[in-house]
Design a protein around this nucleic acid. Sequence first.
DNA 1: CTGAAAGCGCTAACAA
DNA 2: TTGTTAGCGCTTTCAG
Lengths: 348, 348
Amino acid sequence: MATLYDVARAAGVSTATVSRVLHDQAGVRTATRQRVLEVIEELDYVPDGAAQSMGRRRKEVVGLVMMASRGPETEVEQEGLLFIDEVLRGVDSSLADVGWSVLISVVREGGPNALQQLRTVAAKVDGMLISEGIVDSGELAQLAVHTPVVLVAGSAAEPHADVVCVDNDSGTTALADHLIGRHGRRRLYYVDGPPEAPDAQERRRAFEKAVARHPGASLTGYFSGRFTTGSGQQAARELLAAANSELPDAIVCANDQTALGVMRELQAAGIRVPDEIAVTGFDDIHLGTMLTPPLTTVHQSMRQLGERACTLLLQRIADPDLPRRVERLPVELIVRESCGCPPRGTRA
Amino acid sequence: MATLYDVARAAGVSTATVSRVLHDQAGVRTATRQRVLEVIEELDYVPDGAAQSMGRRRKEVVGLVMMASRGPETEVEQEGLLFIDEVLRGVDSSLADVGWSVLISVVREGGPNALQQLRTVAAKVDGMLISEGIVDSGELAQLAVHTPVVLVAGSAAEPHADVVCVDNDSGTTALADHLIGRHGRRRLYYVDGPPEAPDAQERRRAFEKAVARHPGASLTGYFSGRFTTGSGQQAARELLAAANSELPDAIVCANDQTALGVMRELQAAGIRVPDEIAVTGFDDIHLGTMLTPPLTTVHQSMRQLGERACTLLLQRIADPDLPRRVERLPVELIVRESCGCPPRGTRA
DNA sequence: CTGAAAGCGCTAACAA
DNA sequence: TTGTTAGCGCTTTCAG
């Protein structure tokens, strides 16, 4: 492998000059530049990244740490699994502008000390994007002392890092208002996500608040799920089994995966959605458009989440003394048919 | 940021000793080790990755280069998009064993010189996994001179790199035999993928061969698609528009995305699948299980693809003089209902 | 416009 | 068992 020295020697210039040419810096005579360029070409020289990092004291790499899906590999209908892809795209596009790269690390649930893994990553990057649920606030604080960190889809209340999250509040509220105001649903049932997930908390609270604002409407029940299809099925089964009680006329789910399970189970029991019971989700995963009926939900752009998080991270790396920031991304109510609305005109 | 020197000084030992402790190497008295460990803890020391790379002349990072989906971000039904996730998981699991990391780079179609981008990645890694369709054989040859490269899902005929691919042949053959032998389909129509994709070529050839082996069966038509849902729809539309000709009794698609489009369009035209026309895919994407009828297809594990490719890469990095290898991963015929088979017992 | 040279933080061969 | 020290390849300041 040719080094900078080889190039310098072959071109009869100093390493400083080669470096300047390499980075298109001004102050090199055209003829000299030309000569160096030729030698570079000839020697097929590629600068060594590690050495560059040492020299400029910056690696130009950011870490993206995400959670592996729980369960066996074939279980695609899982929390997490669906998001790496989109978030990664956002991050990448934000990085492409400046020529940096992403280092990915997947944390396996129950894997040995996630913190250790994070440290390993930290050694190789200038800053990291960590998705919610990987470390607790204390560990995060430790990490953030030396490494710029942005929490992706994390709790806005996290005091030790910048956070980019989604406006769960307005999304959930819009959904509830639609269901109650537009469709006159009154007996609402809620299928929650895991209590430790900030998104789940925010959505549930917002939902309760929204329901409370509508006289006549009430929360008839509640299931504590885990953002999974299985949770949804379980919730629906329990609901159906409780024979003594009247069924709700709408089931609001903490996310689309859950809604999927609920719908599946209801329909298997011969219940018509949305005629008898409306079902809604949150996230707007692609699968939702393929269901019968198509799922009414709240759209959030994971891509944008990644992009914004990365942008914040780059800014913090550039200036570590920036005040802490929280960015809340807008969401959009996506009305399809599972809420009771009629089919939209033409299909894609 | 504390350095190795700080630790050495504070512990009253040499940097060599600290390094030994850091890597759990033998030959350090327990008491010494203990002391060093304490100092490390106290100073919250984290070794610098770039410096480590320099020292050991190895970065312990592999690059994974994949293609961005074409088209707008919302178009999820695209080639490529669906695979990063799974492949990444395989790579990661293979890397987790040795403690290395993955650097991801997404090549945008039409983006400025992919080769340039690859060089940038090459500077930061010890070897790279490149997915099919990113570089041509010539460029690959250039790259591979200095960097270990494994082609993912590439052409087995590629002479300049190791290749991990899928056994398109046996999968397609099994599918054709099933359709013809089991269901007695005779008038077969094929929707191909892009001609430049090795997978597409292999599948088409295998299909033609398989059909030829069955007297009575024939290939009644052929559409040159692009592995996309859109291609499938277009293929179906053309087929339906050609009013003079008799319709086929089976449409075999180069991949699931395409099959999805075909099914959608056929059903929109009131044609019953599989009663009137059977439809099959290749890949076994999750969506296929959700269709009505569920899609009969050929399963390939992208996760395994990533894992194997990564394993080969690690071996080549360890020994660059290894002979070139091609690994062909097994596939499995997944019989569901779109081929004409009856529903399987219980659903998941 | 160009060059000399001092780092950057760690590893590993060699000595002791 | 521990220490010394020569790199690793590039960047960048400071002189010229």
